[in-house]
Amino acid sequence: MWIPAQSADELYPRDHRDHPPALTPDYKSSVLRAPRHALIALQHSLSEITGPVFHGEELGALDHDLTRNYAHQGSPIGERIIVHGFVRDQNGRPAANTLVEIWQANAGGRYRHRQDQYLAPIDPHFGGCGRALTDENGYYFFRSIKPGPYPWRNRANDWRPAHIHFSLSGTAYAQRLITQMYFEGDPLIASCPIVGTIGDEEQVRGLIAQLDRRATVPFDSLAYRFDIVLRGRRATLFENRVQATQEDL
């Protein structure tokens, strides 16, 4: 059985200062769902550095276009937008062939979900889910409708800023990530307890998509740019590295 050189394949340890802690009492749902024990750190084995592979032919032609993939007899109501960007790893290399899945509320802040009872109406022409594979440059592209903010039961008057949920597969199981993308200039970002679970201002800024006028399609759609960084693989200073340096000389 062939075993890859694991020392060259390991991912950088996750820096937990880049992420919210598990227990964040202002976000009330976390109180009973946060483990009390410390996580047990694993050195990486094949279980962590491998991951599922996805193929373009598994996706439908409209899967990345939320303005059309549930539009049965008309177009959805709302601001037409493009959301696009690059998925890279921590070394700045393109994360190619990564499955990017998104979901969101409609323009009124209502989700097409049997559990959502908010009084804003369902849009008959809007589903709210999309998916795409990044290309060899790590690039992805969606068309959608800008989601509306909505109220939620946390503190008595909490409202989520407009956001799109993002899920990324990466190419290693340990790169798996779910996050949320916000929109530049939204005043609700500052008071949101879920955004506030992230203790670091720079990391919050990393979740705010910027208006991208160059990608805007005149008389059609505004564009927002959202780049994502997944965990990178660690270069090692021993074994392969030393040998290769000598060969290069």
């Binding site: 996750r14 820096d15 880049d18 992420h19 919210p20 976000y27 749902s29 976390s30 890279r88 790893d89 921590q90 070394n91 700045g92 899945e101 998104i102 979901w103 969101q104 989700y111 097409r112 979900h113 559990q115 959502d116 589903g127 709210g128 889910c129 999309g130 998916r131 949920h165 899920s167 990530l177 779910i178 996050t179 949320q180 879920i194 955004v195 679970t197 992230i198 670091d200 720079e202 990391q203 919050v204 990393g206 979740l207 994502i228 960084v229 997944l230 965990r231 990178g232």
Partner: peptide, 16 residues
């Protein structure tokens, strides 16, 4: 680079 920050999947993860 710093890894993009995680956020909860929320109650409607099924949609996506």
């Amino acid at each position: 680079l710093r890894e993009t920050a995680s956020q909860t999947a929320g109650p409607y993860v099924h949609i996506g």
